[in-house]
């Protein structure tokens, strides 16, 4: 019995979301007395994949991500390995690829899951639905049972094993029809909210776009990414990439700090599963306080600069 995990790499290392998927994949494999295997396009991560429990690393020389080539490569490995479970991290590519591969294999997918376990020999998953207003528990049948994991929901843990054995896969994907013309890179040095452990978000309480500097300064001091409410994105104060919520990104970092964000249901949909939530708002009735673990009723313009200084001091210690 094999659990196969699709992994992605960046600068020769496994992405965090992939390490998380490997960790839960290993736990599922162990619980069923099976083995963890990984798929990658870079043999350089064999050692790291091994540390996260992979016994074998299937490596396809598939180049930069394109749906068609990766689907062909992964479907090939699935055919060879016959895994019982196939996991993808819920990254942009994972979510693009998982359903395409599933349709090729005539299999179902549980997407964006935050819990995975075996129940009566079936893969059982929990997924937030209706903007986190409910949780659906689903059984995935079929071989393989496929799921995409919600980033930050499964902590990455090494298992201390040695390097995974590399198995090269040759794939004939044909000429892909879709062509990658260019990748427009983000502003250098800016952390993205998708994978960040800490996010500092600003809302309309900032009054104007230039005041996002209050948010950026704190984010920079604490080592977090900058998030935003839709109201600020719509006002043109900040790019849509930063938007948290139903029509932005769903995030669940370890720490989420919201300042001047009212906490509309669509915003909460994107962040209420964060592990620790701090809210600063001058209105004691603001709905954001209902999900906050620590709420500060006060003026963000007075509190944020002092907080940034205090964080810097704490970091210097």
């Amino acid at each position: 019995m094999t659990v196969l995990v699709f992994t992605e790499t960046k600068d020769g290392k496994l992405k965090k979301a992939s390490r998380e998927a490997l960790t839960i994949g290993r736990k599922l494999a162990e619980a069923a007395g099976g083995e963890l295997a990984a798929f990658a396009t870079d043999a350089g991560v064999a050692e790291e994949a091994g540390r996260y429990g992979a016994k074998k690393l299937y490596v396809a020389n598939a180049g930069p991500y394109l749906t068609e080539t990766y689907t062909a490569a992964l479907a090939q490995v699935v055919k060879d390995v016959q895994p019982s479970v196939l996991l993808f991290a819920g990254s942009s590519n994972g979510r693009d690829l998982a359903p395409r591969v599933a349709a090729r294999l005539d299999a179902g997918v549980a997407s964006d899951v935050d819990r995975l376990e075996w129940t009566d020999g079936k893969l059982r998953a929990r997924r937030p639905v209706y903007s986190g207003k409910a949780f659906a528990t689903v059984d995935v049948t079929g071989k393989p049972a496929i799921a995409t994991t919600r980033p930050n929901a499964f902590p990455a843990e090494e298992s201390g094993a040695g390097a995974a054995e590399v198995v090269n896969v040759s794939v004939d994907a044909g000429q892909p029809r879709v062509k990658l013309v260019e990748t427009k890179a983000p502003e250098a040095g800016e952390l993205t909210i998708a994978e960040a452990d800490i996010i500092v978000s600003g809302g309309r309480g900032l009054k104007e776009g230039a005041n996002f500097s209050y948010i950026r300064d704190l984010a920079h001091a604490i080592g977090g990414a900058v998030g935003a409410s839709r109201a600020t994105v719509d006002a043109g104060w900040i790019d849509h990439q930063h938007q948290v919520g139903q029509t932005g990104r769903v995030v669940s970092p370890n720490l989420y700090i919201a300042a001047g964000v009212s906490g509309a249901i669509q915003h909460l949909a994107g962040m209420s599963s964060s592990k620790h939530i701090v809210a600063i708002n001058k209105d004691p009735e603001a709905p954001i306080f209902r999900v906050a673990d620590l709420g500060i009723v006060g003026d963000l313009f007075q509190i944020l600069p002092v907080l940034t200084e205090e964080v810097k001091k704490a970091k210097a210690h």
Partner: peptide, 23 residues
Amino acid sequence: QRVTVVSLELPAEKSGGRRIDGS
């Protein structure tokens, strides 16, 4: 039913955490 819903539940109501005065 490749994927079957076995239950649908509402999350435990979060009562809100600690509140402090920021004056």
